[in-house]
Design a protein around this nucleic acid. Sequence first.
DNA 1: CTCGGGTCTTGACGGTGTCAACATTGCTCC
DNA 2: GGAGCAATGTTGACACCGTCAAGACCCGAG
Lengths: 222, 222
Amino acid sequence: MTGSSYHHGRLREALVEEAIAAARERGPAGLGLRELARRVGVSHNAAYRHFADREDLVAEVAAHAMEQLVTAMRVRLGEVDEVAEAEPVLRARLRLAAVGRAYVEFALTEPGLFRVAFTADPEGAVAGAMLTEGPYLLLCQVLDEMVEVGFLAPQAREGADVTCWSLVHGFSVLNLDGPLAGAPPAARAAALEQLLLAVDRSYAASTGRGDTLPRQALRLSP
Amino acid sequence: MTGSSYHHGRLREALVEEAIAAARERGPAGLGLRELARRVGVSHNAAYRHFADREDLVAEVAAHAMEQLVTAMRVRLGEVDEVAEAEPVLRARLRLAAVGRAYVEFALTEPGLFRVAFTADPEGAVAGAMLTEGPYLLLCQVLDEMVEVGFLAPQAREGADVTCWSLVHGFSVLNLDGPLAGAPPAARAAALEQLLLAVDRSYAASTGRGDTLPRQALRLSP
DNA sequence: CTCGGGTCTTGACGGTGTCAACATTGCTCC
DNA sequence: GGAGCAATGTTGACACCGTCAAGACCCGAG
């Protein structure tokens, strides 16, 4: 099979694989139709049989990046469950911190994929999926859980999702492409810890609680 | 004067003006050397007598955008001072909310300029200026003020700057180019309000305070 | 009056995304 | 099993872009 080299036979998959690799290395700038075609060993324009245009390709990669992100978040959530089984409110608090930490962890570990995920057109299906089945949904579930266990006040629940999202997203962006790009990793880690403590404190206060989250509880991810 | 049309005489200024206008309309994508040259009525490549390369031009526009941003923040700060003169802690709280609100207000009002401001290379002078004399400095001053008046605990002060910055920056980015781009203005405003209340609550809790910021106090900017 | 240096222009090169026309292949249907 | 059609890949062209290299032009200093 595939003795003839005219028809690639697996071009779409090959292009997507190569695109993902390129995105991990060089971000959105690595996703050039011609360059990808070159790397796959096919002549320019061949990609147009499988993708409407460049945007279509980056949407594909963005979707993959989003999947990676949500599985990363799920992993961190699972780790929390192993630790705090029988204490509902502590569990909920740790779960919120975990999703937040996983978010920026992914952004800093896979900067290329992260950038591509938010390069895709906001009107497109990727952005929609991000809201209905992506990281946003996960965050909302955790926040609802915090309300159920009585840690987060219902009035404070409204808007808490975009607040938390804005927080971790802004942190990621500022540290990736923003003025904080050159910050030493230690400073970054410290800032992230303070950030997570700040939201926990805010939501604790929403139900009149004064206790602060034990700092080592946040350390369960390397 | 200027009878000869060979030498433009004011090319640099004209280019920057046109670049700013283009940035306001189309963001970073509007900053093409050839297109700008065309709009100014000069042939391509003329810009190279005044700018090393494209990055140099966008840095110029980014610097201008940053100035606009900080003056916008200063204006909102001034408005607070008129209202709450004799109550130091209320004043400090409102000032923090004001800088935050001004930040996202600018982002949503001048999306093109905002995008360009954070397009510039993070190693460059613009990013440096953003930290040493830009919005970050303003934010730090307000946070220090909160510590002085005893509203923000010194331990919580550490990292509070990047937390606040991340918050408003993330909110801006998500609403500009992210999945929240299509959100109705009313929802945006509500989310922003909750966001500002959340940080106030967090910092109030840092010193054991339970009172919440009166909501109308936040309404002083349209 | 010359001539030098700063300014602008013209032309070229390699890169990109995209459209149109053409070549090749494999699958289906008779 | 062969014919033909639709899917796939190729070649070529066009319009952009940033950038480098040479030339044309003009003003001011000597």
